[in-house]
């Protein structure tokens, strides 16, 4: 154990001693297109990031030196601390979780600036016992340069850990309101577990039917198939349950009769919506909720109407 630690620490010391790594050029200059995508994704509407004299959002700094998805192995560069990471992986510290990230910005970046970045390992601490398992905290610094001028820095720390042996999955508290299921209805419950809202369809005459049953009342056929519903509907009627308390449920809650465009009705809960805003005729779509390890129930959420 001590031997392993000594070996890992020696590698870490070496990487720290190596100091600043070489400056690697960013794949693209600071540019408006990338900035536009980033601000849109972040919902950042600061006008400083658009127009003639646009600057790049400082928090984007890491974006400029990212390699992209299809890396060219020939162009890959190794950092001094990659030897440390390889050794940790080989010693069973395969888990990784980022724990800290601090940015420092020296100035705004303008469009067209070409950046380089350099990495320096700061330290490694460990082994530490954590909730995830035993591991080492590795900390490094990245500095971005425009020409020779440092423009931003980042301190990054992560935990490399030995994942604890996967624990037996904790059984969830069984949901008390279970449906009775038999051969006539199992297809429905199997369906919701797979994220499918199934409607029984007569194998002979094609009539759709919910709730399902063993014999088609239209043509007497016992041949049964099903279709998968489109997953939308409208509230045909609904109630808000307040009293008495219902096992497995928090009151108040909404139960609705939902009319499906396929021509059948189903009962289900309206969820993720203010109770007082539910109304007859409200458009909804299906979602699924795991109630316990066995049971999944279809539920309904409103389809937000365009503002």
């Amino acid at each position: 154990m001590t031997e392993l630690r000594d070996h890992l620490m020696a590698l870490a010391d070496k990487a720290v001693a190596a100091g600043d790594g070489p400056r690697h050029p960013a794949p693209h200059p600071v540019n408006a297109i990338m900035t536009s995508h980033w601000t849109e994704a972040m919902g950042d509407r600061n006008p400083a990031y658009t127009g003639q004299d646009a600057v790049a959002p400082p928090a984007m700094i890491q974006v400029w030196s990212m390699e992209g998805l299809s890396r060219d192995p020939a162009k890959e560069f190794r950092r001094a601390m990659d030897d440390v990471f390889d050794a940790l992986d080989q010693s069973g510290y395969t888990g990784v979780v980022a724990t800290n990230c601090e940015h420092t910005y020296h100035r705004y970046l303008s469009m067209g600036e070409e950046l380089t970045s350099s990495t320096r390992m700061l330290d490694m601490v460990g082994p530490k016992r954590t909730a995830l398992g035993e591991g080492y905290f590795v900390t490094w610094n990245v500095t971005w340069f425009s020409g020779d001028e440092p423009v931003a820095e980042m301190m990054f720390r992560l935990l490399k850990f030995q994942p604890l042996r996967p624990v037996e999955k904790v059984k969830r508290e069984p949901y008390p309101l279970t449906p009775a299921v038999n051969g006539d209805t199992r297809f429905f419950w199997d369906g919701v577990r797979q994220g499918e809202l199934r409607i029984q369809k007569c194998g002979a005459c094609g009539e759709l039917r919910h709730p399902p049953g063993p014999v088609c009342p239209s043509c007497r056929s016992a041949e049964r198939t099903h279709i998968v519903a489109g997953g939308t509907g409208t509230v045909y009627s609904y109630v808000v349950h307040h009293h008495p308390a219902v096992p497995g449920r928090e009151t108040p809650f909404v139960v609705a009769v939902v009319e499906l465009p396929e021509g059948v009705r189903m009962v289900g809960n309206i969820v993720q919506y203010p109770i007082e805003d539910v109304y007859v005729g409200m458009p909804v779509r299906v979602t699924y909720q795991e109630m316990d390890d066995e049971l999944t129930l279809p539920m309904w959420v409103p389809i937000q109407e365009a503002v």
């Binding site: 309101l177 449906p179 009775a180 349950h241 219902v246």
Partner: peptide
């Protein structure tokens, strides 16, 4: 008037009927 989870407990015709409602808390 009190909820009875056993309403949908057995796959009798009535138990199956209740099974389309009771799991959603539509039980009183």
């Amino acid at each position: 008037g009190q909820p009875n989870a056993r309403l949908s407990g057995e796959p009798s015709s009535q138990g199956l009927e209740m099974s389309w409602h009771v799991p959603y808390g539509l039980i009183t």
